[in-house]
Simulated scan of single mutants.
Amino acid sequence: MLQLRKSNERGHANHGWLDSYHTFSFADYFDRNHMHFSDLRVINEDFIQPTMGFGTHPHKDMEILTYVLQGAIAHKDSMGNVKTFTAGEFQIMSAGTGIYHSEFNPSESELLHLLQIWIMPNEQGIKPRYDQKQFADKEGATLILSPDAEGESFKVYQDMKLWRHQYKAHQKVELGLNSRRNYWLQVVKGNLTVNDIALATSDALGISAEELATIETSDEVEFLLFDLR
Rank of each mutant, 00 (worst) to 15 (best):
S107V: 06
S218I: 14
H113S: 11
E63L: 02
F226G: 04
D28N: 13
T201K: 07
V221M: 02
H59N: 03
V188S: 04
P147T: 03
T23G: 01
N182K: 10
I207E: 06
I215V: 15
W118G: 00
L177Y: 11
G125I: 02
E103M: 03
I144V: 15
N33K: 15
L2W: 13
L4A: 08
E222F: 13
P58E: 01
N178A: 05
Y100K: 07
L192A: 08
H170V: 05
D31F: 07
T217Q: 01
K168G: 13
D137G: 11
I48W: 09
T86D: 15
A209W: 11
N44W: 11
E89M: 11
R229G: 09
T214L: 10
M120G: 01
L224W: 07
D39Y: 15
F30W: 12
R180F: 15
G71K: 10
T23P: 00
E210S: 15
F54M: 04
F54K: 05
W184N: 07
F85M: 06
D19C: 05
F37W: 15
L115R: 05
A87K: 15
Q70L: 12
L112Q: 04
E222N: 08
D159H: 09
L177V: 12
S102L: 04
V188K: 10
F30I: 03
Y29M: 06
D31Y: 08
E211R: 13
A213F: 08
L111Y: 15
T56G: 03
P121E: 03
K76R: 13
V188Q: 07
E139S: 12
A72H: 13
V82M: 07
S202D: 13
A200L: 10
T142H: 08
D203N: 08
L224K: 03
T217S: 01
L212D: 12
N122C: 12
S20T: 15
L175C: 06
G151Q: 08
L2P: 01
Q49F: 10
L145V: 03
A204Y: 02
G96F: 01
T193H: 10
Y67R: 09
K127I: 08
H75I: 07
H165V: 05
K127Q: 13
A95M: 06
S109V: 04
A198K: 10
H57W: 02
K138Y: 06
Q91M: 09
F135I: 11
G140D: 02
L199P: 03
T97Y: 04
A169Q: 09
L114K: 08
R229Q: 14
P147W: 06
P50D: 07
S109A: 12
Y100P: 01
Q134R: 09
P147I: 06
G176H: 14
H59G: 01
E103V: 00
M62T: 11
G151T: 05
V221W: 03
L175R: 12
M62W: 02
L224G: 04
A213W: 12
S107N: 12
P106W: 09
V188R: 12
L199D: 00
Q91T: 06
I119C: 02
I207K: 09
T193W: 15
L2C: 09
Q132M: 09
D131V: 10
D137R: 10
R181G: 14
R229S: 10
